[in-house]
Computed example of a mutant assay.
Amino acid sequence: MRPERPETRLAPCARLPRGHRDRHIVHSSVDAFGRAHWLLTEDPPERRGTGPYDALVVTVGDGSHHETHLSAVLPWRPRLEALPDGGFVLAAARAAKNDGRQVQVFDPLGRPTRAFRVGDAIEHLLADRAGDLWVAYFDEGVFGDELSAAGLRRWSVTGEPRWAFSPVPGARWIDDCYALNVTGRTAWACPYAQFPLLEVGPDGVVRVRRNPVRGATAIAVHGERAVFFGGYGDDRDRLVDCRLTETSVEPVAETRLVLPGGALIGRNRTVSRGSRVHVQVEPWTEWYVLDLA
């Protein structure tokens, strides 16, 4: 039975302009500066064929929107991430070990500049404010691909490995990285199976906090406060408000996260950025936000 909890309501954040809603939404994301992006194609993947294709990115922020036309796109059903210079990264979540076109980088004019591989089974892909790519992996990659085995890695935008997680006191190897938050040059992660809260500084040093919250898929952090969204079964819309100490996560209150009008969230995508958890639900045309700040 679903636990009875008070409600916390999301706020509207960004909406895909109506003039673009006749296209197929491949993916959508929110970047390090709070701008929302939608990757659109004329046809769904099953009708596009297997060769390179063109796509459109619609960016919404600061009360306006603009378009970037991408040419010769290679990754199939890619994830989208925006770079600080105005360019974009597209990455296929699944990739064979010889797939050198898994990740494709585009300049601000939408022209492809390079392609490389970062490992199979991408769970999260987030660029930081310097343009480095933080990639978190789920278990099929962790246990099946040497590039994914660390569970969490940082790559340059040219495909150079810059950091990879390895066990530290209080945190063993990552089996599956459930949640990832990237803010500034710092990353926060919550991996299966013990779900410690990992804080990875710009220098790669990892701080570990013991965490009793299990199964969360999104995190927001602000000062000494953190909230965890998601969980197993009836906890899938759970929001746990916590206090951070030097060594632990201390739950303070639990609520149920709902849409602005009070409707249940249901199937969703999330992006965690600093003090914010961004949430998107079907039909994927609008982003909502919870902001601790």
Rank of each mutant, 00 (worst) to 15 (best):
210 R>W: 08
174 I>Y: 06
60 V>F: 05
148 S>P: 13
157 V>N: 13
79 R>N: 00
79 R>K: 06
92 A>H: 06
106 F>N: 14
220 A>M: 10
167 P>Q: 05
38 W>H: 10
7 E>N: 11
134 W>L: 02
103 V>L: 02
266 G>Q: 03
153 R>D: 08
101 R>F: 00
259 L>A: 09
91 A>C: 12
96 A>P: 03
107 D>I: 14
123 E>H: 10
55 A>Y: 11
30 V>Y: 07
202 P>F: 08
77 R>G: 00
226 A>C: 07
292 L>V: 09
94 R>N: 02
232 Y>N: 12
30 V>C: 14
252 V>T: 06
237 D>Y: 03
79 R>V: 04
193 A>I: 06
53 Y>P: 10
17 P>E: 12
75 P>T: 10
59 T>D: 11
6 P>S: 02
239 L>D: 01
139 D>K: 05
162 R>V: 15
219 I>F: 08
140 E>P: 04
185 R>M: 13
191 P>T: 05
98 N>S: 09
151 G>D: 03
173 W>S: 08
166 S>E: 15
185 R>G: 08
188 W>R: 08
147 L>H: 09
21 R>F: 13
6 P>Y: 02
256 R>G: 00
126 L>H: 02
83 L>V: 11
67 E>I: 13
259 L>T: 07
4 E>Y: 01
205 V>D: 10
111 R>N: 15
16 L>K: 09
4 E>Q: 10
94 R>M: 03
235 D>N: 10
41 T>A: 10
218 A>M: 14
4 E>N: 04
193 A>V: 09
8 T>M: 01
74 L>W: 07
61 G>Q: 15
211 N>D: 12
224 E>F: 02
40 L>T: 14
211 N>Y: 03
164 A>F: 08
225 R>T: 08
47 R>D: 15
190 C>L: 07
165 F>C: 04
53 Y>H: 07
91 A>P: 05
149 A>R: 15
198 L>I: 06
201 G>I: 04
73 V>M: 09
82 A>N: 09
106 F>H: 13
35 R>S: 13
132 D>G: 08
208 V>A: 04
202 P>G: 09
166 S>P: 15
75 P>Q: 05
190 C>Q: 02
48 R>T: 06
130 A>F: 15
265 I>G: 03
246 E>Y: 00
245 T>M: 02
101 R>T: 04
116 F>E: 05
256 R>M: 01
